[in-house]
């Protein structure tokens, strides 16, 4: 199994976190409202564990750079082309688009992103003249990583479905609508992250706490989630438009937010943290 977590990374984070934890628990047990002291220890502990989580570089190969710019355009085009059909009948359109989006995301991950377990510095480095061929290589390990990431993505989809239901999505009806919407969200936002981080718990804790550095993958997640959240806003309005039906606006928010977050995360806000 070539998918190995970057051991050094996670273990160091855990050790440091544990130190910080013990420090803060001693403070907390004193029963006082020790805000200042606790927060300082927390922040030092956090920064130390976070320093190791670096923003993801897009590979510098020609193919990667081309794909990086072409894919958002392809996703946008796909969305715009199928919009009318989506409004007319969401379920088959979302179902049919799913493999296409999956293929696009797979291409994006394989060509542009460093797979989990791959030393991050490798893609960081400027390719030497002789190494050019190797950089663009898609080894069997990366393919397995990608497959594993897609398995994880399908695992996370039911949870997203459930979360949508918690936000007020129809619980007993429209099951396939919500599920497909969740699948799109997972494929767009979670798949690249699974590909990059694997099942590295420290990295996922950072992602979960929204303190990972912004890059194309994490930016996409933030954008996608926020877009999905905002997508619920126009639903109750009594404009009687067809596109207000479930889950068109949510999907629109997901795509818009994801693309915006991915582009901004990859360029303007790259490396920044919340």
């Amino acid at each position: 199994m070539p998918l190995v977590d970057p051991v050094t990374m996670s273990s160091s984070a855990i050790v440091k976190g544990a130190v910080a934890q013990s420090a803060s628990t001693t403070k907390a047990t004193s029963g006082s409202q020790g805000t200042d002291s606790t927060t300082t220890t927390m922040s030092t502990g956090a920064s130390s564990s976070l320093a190791t989580l670096r923003p993801v570089h897009i590979k510098q190969t020609l193919a990667a750079q081309t794909v990086r710019h072409a894919l958002p355009a392809a996703l946008t085009a796909l969305y715009l082309l199928r919009f009318d059909a989506l409004v007319a009948d969401p379920v088959p359109v979302m179902r049919n688009a799913l493999p296409v989006v999956a293929a696009l995301q797979m291409t994006y991950a394989l060509l542009c992103l460093p797979a989990a377990g791959e030393p991050a510095s490798k893609s960081n480095r400027k390719p030497r003249p002789g190494e050019k061929k190797k950089g663009g290589d898609i080894g069997s390990s990366t393919i397995i990583t990608a497959l594993l990431a897609s398995v994880l993505t399908s695992v996370v989809t039911p949870f997203l479905h459930f979360a949508m239901a918690l936000f007020g999505a129809p619980f007993l009806t429209h099951g396939s609508h919500t599920f497909l919407c969740a699948a799109h969200l997972a494929l767009l936002t979670f798949f690249p992250l699974f590909y990059v981080h694997g099942v590295d718990s420290a990295a996922w804790a950072a992602v979960g706490g929204f303190r990972a550095p912004l890059d194309e993958t994490f930016g996409g997640l933030v954008g996608g989630l926020f877009g999905a959240w905002l997508g619920a806003v126009p639903i109750p309005l009594d404009w009687d438009r067809e596109w207000q039906k479930w889950p068109v606006t949510i999907l629109c928010g997901i795509y818009g937010g994801y693309l915006l977050g991915r582009i901004l995360g990859g360029t303007l806000f790259w490396g920044k943290r919340f």
């Binding site: 976190g17 910080a20 934890q21 803060s24 628990t25 907390a28 927390m42 502990g45 956090a46 979360a163 918690l166 936000f167 007020g168 804790a205 950072a206 992602v207 979960g208 706490g209 929204f210 303190r211 959240w229």
Partner: peptide, 17 residues
């Protein structure tokens, strides 16, 4: 729900497991 999800996410920032 938004509040609950945000608190759950921000719980990831806590160091004490």
């Amino acid at each position: 729900t938004t509040f609950g999800i945000v608190t759950a996410l921000s719980a990831f920032r806590m160091e004490s497991l």
